[in-house]
Computed example of a mutant assay.
Amino acid sequence: MACADSTIATSDYATLSTSMLKRMAWSDTDLLLLHYSFFNEELEALLDLPVRKILIYHNVTPGHFFRGQGSMSWLGDMCDHSRAQMRRFAGSFEKGVGDSDYNTAELREFGFRDPVTIPVFFNDAFFSSRELDNQLYLDIKAASEVNIVFVGRFVPNKRHDLLIDTLAAYKRLFGRSASLHLGGKIWGDEYFHGLLGRAVQGGVLSDIKIYQNASGLAIKTLFAAADAYISMSEHEGFMVPVLEAFTVGCPVLAYAGTAVGETMGPAGIKFDTLDPSIPAGYLELLRRDKTLRNNIVREQADRATDFYSEATARRWLSFLEGFVDISAGLHS
């Protein structure tokens, strides 16, 4: 793993800085895999290394989502710089890998030749285990009749505003106590405070629970305790929390734009409108129809197996056989 020199002091022991990579004795038979998800000017220095290079693309949100968001406008500029950097990188990499067909299509647009798709790894063993934070689970179940969960950083493309509206719509339409559990990092105080203001206007501020820097066990427990994972996100390159929810057994209701529908496949409930009353209605339907809920959970579990670590590892091994001799390592 590599990172900028400025962050090496806070990184783990397996992390190399870009300057360390530059000083290594590379040969033209070596292979460098570079994961990319945001602008880093130091990466430009790696392009001249005498080594075969593969870029693994995890998507960069288009900058327009951050325009008009006050103090977050700088993030839009950096996202646009990132996407421009990808275009400059295209000719320097032997191959590009997208972790979804959506991302692979973007690589093609950036100028990468014949990119391929290999999904991300996610911790399927952990999310399929029975370990939970039992006290958190009981607290969630005792506080509300209905619980909604979403996991993702607080940025405009995730559309937390529409999740707040969905909560308000559900309470208004069906008159039940309900809570919205939001796990993720706050990226901009001004934007976050605007979301709180929206919750005040909708009369649901006290029904929203925020989990910053939550542990994996806490996130898993939120999935297990929730009646549904609801996503109104307008831009995703893959959306790993969908698979995590699938694996835990939490029904997923999601706006199917960008890569979300691709990740969900035939499982869960997808919709093509950002009208909050739609997921609110589906949420109540799942509450009333246990057979439907059980069928959805079963279909989601089947879909999640397509992305289990063993399957993804096999795809990587097959791909890498075209670049390096891995047979010795497999049989040692």
Rank of each mutant, 00 (worst) to 15 (best):
I186C: 03
A226Q: 14
A199V: 13
Y282L: 00
T166F: 05
A168E: 02
L167Q: 06
I186E: 07
L167F: 04
A168S: 12
Y255C: 06
A259Q: 00
D207T: 14
N213P: 09
M239E: 12
G237H: 10
L274C: 01
W187M: 01
L196F: 08
G249M: 15
W187P: 00
K171M: 13
R176T: 09
A199F: 09
S215I: 09
G175T: 05
F174D: 09
K220T: 14
I219S: 13
G183Q: 00
A199T: 03
T166H: 09
P241M: 10
P276E: 09
G183C: 15
L167H: 09
G265T: 08
A214M: 13
G175N: 08
E284T: 03
G184T: 05
G249S: 15
L286N: 09
Q201M: 03
H235M: 14
S233K: 00
G268I: 12
L195C: 10
Y229I: 06
D189W: 13
V242R: 02
A178M: 03
L243S: 00
M239W: 07
I186F: 06
A254G: 13
A199C: 03
G183Y: 02
A224H: 05
V252T: 08
K220R: 01
Y211H: 11
G261S: 12
G237D: 06
A245I: 10
S233T: 14
S206R: 15
T166S: 07
E244P: 08
G257F: 11
V260C: 03
R198W: 04
P251K: 07
A280Y: 06
P266A: 11
L222K: 02
D207L: 08
V242Y: 00
I278Y: 11
R172K: 15
F174K: 12
I278A: 08
Y255G: 03
N213R: 06
A259E: 14
L182E: 00
P266G: 04
L253M: 09
G261V: 14
S179R: 13
F192I: 01
G257R: 15
E262K: 02
S179W: 00
R176W: 06
G261C: 02
L222F: 11
M232W: 04
G281T: 14
E244R: 12
D275T: 11
L182D: 11
D272M: 09
T166K: 00
I230E: 01
A168F: 06
F223D: 04
Y170L: 08
M239D: 15
G216V: 07
D227P: 02
H193S: 14
